[in-house]
Design a protein around this nucleic acid. Structure first.
Lengths: 232, 232
DNA sequence: CTAAATTTGTTCGTATGTATC
DNA sequence: CGATACATACGAACAAATTTA
């Protein structure tokens, strides 16, 4: 059970964009050129491009190729940062915890079940302002020791890691965006006023049968916007 | 230059969901069954299903078929209504106007150019509460008389109408979601408190070269959430 | 101004893999 | 274990739109 080809192609292109090899405004090589380079069918290349387009990294400039839009923040690629300042992601805490009611409902496990929690924070690199708070939760009663090591030990986790930890393929995720006023905790951690709204993104990643990850990100409403490219 | 097949298939399935022929929780016919029914290739069926899935109307329940999630509000299908009450859409005003700075920037036309404006309102059918306000703007200097008639005359406009009015294919759109506090006008029209945030969705539809529609929807933050299904 | 080249979009057909029941 | 149904993958051809020669 190896990862599908289109994911590999996509990962390579993503790395080239993140690494600066392809910059915003650049044109991607033509589909047929990528087809030849990777030795795959054109449909595979197109699947990869569709994925990059969904995440806002590239856009089709038909019929002049695909244009790079620029790098995004990993795992919240559909939230666009409205600041020019460079940012940094801090993993502030990684621990085992008992599932709260909300997490339990999202992950479809009993309240109090063991979950891995990964707290993160996004902040500006210059001003050191905190722009957003993240929390990922993973059900621990579904993984073995090796999986637990991935979820609780690694500095960073991407989707491939997640699939390895659970030994299952992620078939999709469901993302919800809401706006609301901040709680007092959020106000103090994000240093925002009582009346400044926050934007909340909640994502449940699913295998074919069960949810395996619940991610919530809360950011200042004036720092982020949801950003979706849709091809009808 | 007729519309692509996958759009036709999608339109038929959309109509079946909107019309109640397919209800939430139902399973869609298998891809191969649809392939036979419509007499198209399976890739075409899959394109149609991918589109429905993006709009939150169906979801893949691999490998048990596609499941219907239920009808959505047209042209804001990616905003999910958080109320159970039935809703209704009112076209409150249709007129020619001069492009404001914001509209002009979005549509890439000079400030003051003629645009068609379509104001709409979404409200609960029982309580008659107003939940959201919509405004679509279309550049009029790019259409002929027939196009103008469509943009300024028809009761409802969908994407096919738009393509007819401009004689060009819409290749995609860019949707942005933001949260903010309401303006005084919005407060009074939506009957919300000063501190209750609103969610703002802005969408630019584009042909290959130019934007041809700018749509802004503003809703109470506690009435709507962005709702995105992503298949990585 | 026209024609060719380029590149994505659409569509077809087929085959095999994989998860669920 | 077999049937079902989606996921992945290959290959090919033509259409449509833009740029270039």
């Amino acid at each position: 059970m190896q990862p599908p080809l289109h994911k590999k192609v996509r990962a390579v292109l993503e790395a080239r964009i993140a690494g600066g090899e392809l910059r915003a405004g650049d044109r991607l090589p033509a589909e047929r050129a990528l087809q030849d380079e990777f030795g795959v069918a054109r449909s595979v290349v197109r699947q990869a491009l569709a994925g990059l387009s969904r995440d806002g990294l590239v856009v089709s400039a038909y019929p002049r190729g695909y244009v790079v839009l620029g790098p995004r923040i990993p795992w919240i690629s559909r939230l666009r940062l409205l600041r020019d300042e460079p940012w940094t992601v801090l993993i502030t805490d990684v621990k085992e915890a008992a599932a709260s009611e909300r997490v339990a409902a999202a992950l479809d496990v009993p309240v109090g079940s063991p979950v891995a929690e990964r707290h993160s924070e996004l902040r500006g690199r210059v001003t050191e302002d905190s722009w957003g708070l993240g929390l990922s939760s993973y059900p621990l009663d579904l993984v073995d020791a090796a999986g637990e090591a991935i979820l609780l030990g690694q500095p960073e986790i991407d989707y491939d890691d997640l699939e390895r930890a659970f030994g299952r393929r992620i078939v999709g995720y469901h993302e919800r965006i809401r706006a609301r006023l901040p709680t007092s905790t959020e106000r103090s951690r994000l240093h925002i006023a009582h009346s400044a709204p926050v934007i909340e993104l909640a994502r449940i990643s699913r295998t074919t049968t069960i949810p395996i990850s619940y991610f919530v990100f809360i950011g200042c409403a004036d720092c982020f916007e949801g950003d979706y490219l849709v091809q009808p």
